[in-house]
């Protein structure tokens, strides 16, 4: 009888642990939820020839954005990202673009060309290990993760409420017209002011991030 009770207790504890693990996922993210710590990373090669580690980030706010050169949703929103970085210049905010796909057109040589052609005004790194993307549950490009001074996740998802893609004729199409809700900008403003982030998670939209299989 005692053994049976012990087994039931162990099972109950196991279920509770499993339940808490599942609850750690966000509404649209299978891996992390708001409040998750920023994963550490080291010596990721950047398009400017430097390397970047998480310890190098001294700013109060860090914005990690997963990008993929080939993706029309990245191309459609490149200008919005560059404009936002410009707008926040002078504030203690650091934007870091991250590419994790292993396709040739998403690797470092192509990243350098893409950054140059699109006026990227932020550090753009390649994470061949894909560890950063995996640990943050990043599955689309572009997808934003905003961390406060405590390096806890404060926002994840879209840059704004009207995802845009670059059409075949080169024009940009905003799916929901002119954007009206600027989630990343609002999250940065709230964190800077010490306020609660108004919208902490949105459904990101874009191209799939392609993760390698363990045996691949």
């Amino acid at each position: 009888m005692t053994k049976k009770l012990t087994r039931m207790f162990v099972c109950l504890v196991g279920l509770l642990i499993l339940g808490s693990a599942v609850a750690s996922a966000g509404q649209y993210n299978a891996v992390v939820d708001i409040g998750a710590p920023m994963p550490e990373f080291s010596d990721l090669p950047a398009t400017d020839g430097s390397t970047l580690s998480s310890d190098d980030l001294e700013e109060d706010i860090v914005v990690l954005v997963f990008l993929a050169n080939h993706c029309p949703w990245v191309k459609g929103m490149d200008a919005d990202l560059v404009a936002l970085v410009d707008e926040l210049e002078g504030q203690s905010v650091r934007f870091v673009g991250v590419s994790v796909n292993h396709r040739d057109d998403d690797r470092l040589p192509a990243m350098k060309e893409h950054a140059l052609a699109n006026g990227y005004n932020f550090t753009y790194v390649f994470d061949e290990s894909q560890a950063l993307g995996r640990r943050l549950g990043a599955t689309t490009t572009p997808e934003y993760f905003v961390f406060g001074k405590d390096r806890r996740l404060a926002y994840m998802g879209l840059i704004h409420n009207s995802p845009a893609s670059k059409r075949r004729d080169g024009t940009v199409n905003y799916t929901r017209g002119e954007p009206t809700d600027f989630y990343v900008r609002d999250a940065v403003a709230a964190l800077s002011a010490g306020d609660e982030v108004p919208v902490a998670e949105t459904r990101s939209h874009g191209c799939s991030v392609e993760y390698q299989r363990a045996d691949g």
Partner: peptide
């Protein structure tokens, strides 16, 4: 429908 709304209605995060 526009792709972003379609993804939401179909409860898709990404494709394939």
């Amino acid at each position: 429908e526009n792709t972003a709304d379609a993804f939401e209605k179909l409860d898709l995060l990404s494709i394939p």
